[in-house]
């Protein structure tokens, strides 16, 4: 099971590097990188702090601490996905409203042009 903890450590470190790299290249906005970084740092810390992991495993009633860590990984990513689903939904609504507004304004501009041209 130590191997599983090492894998989680490696994946968390990789995720942190990937997110920082993406932020540096302006592929992810800073505000959206925070959830990923916070999640990855928490997983990294938990995978290295076996004492804390044992306490959490006891609290959750899970016999094996690495399994508790996997459970936490799943929960962390579910929360992050939920947060991004909210953001995407809001962006989609805004995008539709904006597209409709642009179309309507263009329509009004064309109508004014036609009227000015004497149609």
């Amino acid at each position: 099971m130590d191997r599983l903890l090492n894998v989680v450590t490696g994946m968390s470190a990789l995720l942190i590097v990937l997110v920082l790299f993406s932020v540096r290249r302006a592929r992810i906005r800073v505000e959206y990188s925070v959830a990923w970084l916070a999640g990855a740092v928490a997983l990294l810390a938990l995978s290295r702090a076996s004492g804390l992991l044992h306490v959490i495993a006891d609290l959750l009633g899970v016999a094996d601490p690495p399994l508790a860590l996997l459970l936490i990984v799943g929960c962390v990513f579910l929360i992050i996905f939920y947060r991004f689903s909210l953001i995407i939904s809001q962006l989609k609504d805004d995008n539709i409203a904006l597209a409709q507004r642009v179309a309507i304004l263009e329509y009004h501009i064309e109508s004014l042009k036609d009227r000015a041209a004497g149609f």
């Binding site: 539709i96 642009v102 179309a103």
Partner: peptide, 12 residues
């Protein structure tokens, strides 16, 4: 004609 700038689907 009211042309939309991109595809919104029927409801939009």
């Amino acid at each position: 004609v009211l042309p939309l700038p991109h595809h919104l689907g029927l409801g939009g």
